[in-house]
Amino acid sequence: MSPAPLLSVQDLKVHFDVTRKRLFGGTPAIVKAVDGVTFDLKPGETLGLVGESGCGKSTLGRAVLRLLPATAGRVVWLGEDLHSLDHAEMQQKRRDMQIIFQDPLASLNPRMTVGQIIAEPLSVFNPDLSGTEVKNRVRQMMAKVGLLPNQINRYPHEFSGGQAQRIGIARAMINNPRMIVCDEPVSALDVSIQAQIVNLLMDLQHEMGMSLIFISHNLSVVRHISHRVMVLYLGKVMEIADRDSIYANPLHPYTQALNSAVPIPDPDLERQKDRIVLKGDLPSPLNPPSGCPFRTRCPRATEICAQIMPDLLPAGPTHHVACHHAGPRER
């Protein structure tokens, strides 16, 4: 029996009403950013969320933390549906769940010192803590994420991108949370710094045991850090599987195309590689295709794909795929 999930997302939908309000009428427009997503997250597990722009991965990450309202579905955290809690109850839950952002500098208040930024979540949940105690805890956390504790009185703009991301990680870790949503945490960083941050997150997880939801469009990084990977396309889950299956044996044509599109830093391999180049761009999320959203670019699409969205069905013990024509790639 596998351990009880920390988080269980059930048929979650997040829709945005983007109707342009006009004096007379106006055409109603709904963006289904997240449209019926279901998954579990186990304690200590890293789930990678991959997909291209507009696939809803960031929206999903925020809805899980109830930073955005859910249109339908449930986000069950240790047996309780987060979206049915009142504001005060939800605030209490926030001690155990945190978020790290893509743009490290934008996620830090430029008017506060590093010490104040990292201490804020700590003081919210421990208002009685003395000033010295807060400062000690902040300094310990700074050392843990690889910042010099004597920089505690500096301001965010005095740090480089990689160091600023360490500050963001320290803020997220200060209450020792059980889950962190990492929203493209390395995408804005230089190549040589990305590796530092990935290693840091993996070390911290090893030491503190929190779960991670790791959102990224960089498949190589996701493969490196995740235990399981979920592939999204226009708000729907295409495939979810353990890391090795999804990279070695992807069954969904979209996952296969994504995998083959990533350039490999080896001229011989990269130039000989047999790539699937998809036709066209992503469809507008305002007006998604009927049936399976991927069918307009899918090399295997047939008539049924335009009519029925395939269910996410098991294809192995830890492997689920949503495709009428799921199967290994033909060479």
Binding site: V191, S192, A195, Q196, L219, S220, R223, I264, P265, L269
Partner: peptide
Amino acid sequence: RSMPRLDEHRINRLQTIGGQP
């Protein structure tokens, strides 16, 4: 060395360049 690669068979700890850009 600091780039994770899709074509590697075993996933090892990433080697990093220390310091800042």
